[in-house]
Every structure is written in structure tokens, then in C-alpha cells.
């Protein structure tokens, strides 16, 4: 049951990406291209997603526990620290080069474009490296001026 519902959630997310046009890197890049043929669609995707998520979360949080888990497990970190800032900046550069972020990259896999087949393994390698590096002492703002 958990697996079927997990699959269904991913399917709904992926259909949303396809319908909204966000599975197409060209559309994402044109959103970021303010000085070119600007396509504001991505702003509408974020808007639609945010309204539903904001309201839906508040309905769901009236429950004591989720349907299939013991409790709600929300990110607890509050600090705007160095890994967050550096990570977001690097992510933006990659996003601006490729027009993919992780969700659309997965939905592109089955269409087998050569660019996707290079992108995904490199993304997984980067993700692994980033997760390992996050805890490095040099990256934490503690002890720095």
C-alpha cells in the first residue's frame, strides 16, 4: 500500500510537471531569460503549487499523525547557514545551464535524450558529494568571523 501510494504521489507530481510545461527545459530557461523571449509560465506553476500546498498542509496538520507514518517530520533547521547559501547559488548556476531541476530531470529519463542520460548520473554523483560535504567543518559558519 505504501509503495502504491508513493508511486501515485510521484505520478501526480510528474503529470503536473508535464502539464505545466516544466518538464521542458526550454520553458524553464525562457523563464530565467528576463532579457530575452521571457516566458512567465514558471511563475504560474509556483503560484498554483503554493496555493494548493499552503492550504492543503494546514488541513493535513489538523490530524495528529499522517496516514502511514508515526508523526510529521518537518525540516527543523532554522539557520541560514553557509551550505544553504553556497548550495542554492551552485544549484542556480546548473539550473541556468541545463534548464533541469531534479524533478523534471527524472520525468525526462524515459524519453532518453542524450543530454538527460548524461545529466542524471552527474546529478546523482553531485548529490552524493554534496550530502557528504555538508557536514565538513570548513563549511559551517561556526568559528568563522
Amino acid at each position: 500500500m505504501r509503495n502504491i501510494l508513493g508511486f501515485a504521489s510521484g505520478l501526480v507530481f510528474g503529470i503536473g510537471l508535464v502539464v505545466s510545461g516544466m518538464a521542458n527545459p526550454a520553458k524553464v530557461l525562457n523563464f530565467l531569460d528576463l532579457a530575452g523571449a521571457w516566458d512567465p509560465s514558471l511563475g504560474f506553476v509556483m503560484g498554483g503549487a503554493l496555493v494548493v500546498t499552503y492550504l492543503g498542509y494546514r488541513l493535513v496538520w489538523r490530524r495528529k499523525t499522517p496516514v502511514l507514518a508515526e508523526g510529521f517530520d518537518l525540516p527543523s533547521s532554522r539557520r541560514t547557514d553557509r551550505p544553504l547559501v553556497i548550495g542554492a547559488a551552485l544549484f542556480g548556476i546548473g539550473w541556468g545551464i541545463g534548464g533541469f531541476c531534479p524533478g523534471p530531470a527524472w520525468t525526462a529519463l524515459a524519453l532518453l535524450a542524450p543530454g538527460t542520460l548524461i545529466f542524471l548520473p552527474m546529478m546523482l554523483f553531485g548529490l552524493w558529494l554534496g550530502a557528504q560535504a555538508k557536514g565538513l567543518p570548513g563549511l559551517n559558519s561556526k568559528g568563522n568571523p
Partner: peptide, 20 residues
């Protein structure tokens, strides 16, 4: 885009409701 975005939101709400 608005409709697709709403589906993405629905999925986010499903994951919160089901798995927290």
C-alpha cells in the same frame, strides 16, 4: 501552468498527509 502547478501542490499535500 497554473493547473499543472496545482497538481504538483496536490502531490506535495499527498506526501505530507500519507508520509508526513
Amino acid at each position: 501552468s497554473l493547473g499543472g502547478g496545482a497538481l504538483i501542490g496536490l502531490s506535495a499535500v499527498m506526501v505530507m498527509a500519507l508520509f508526513g
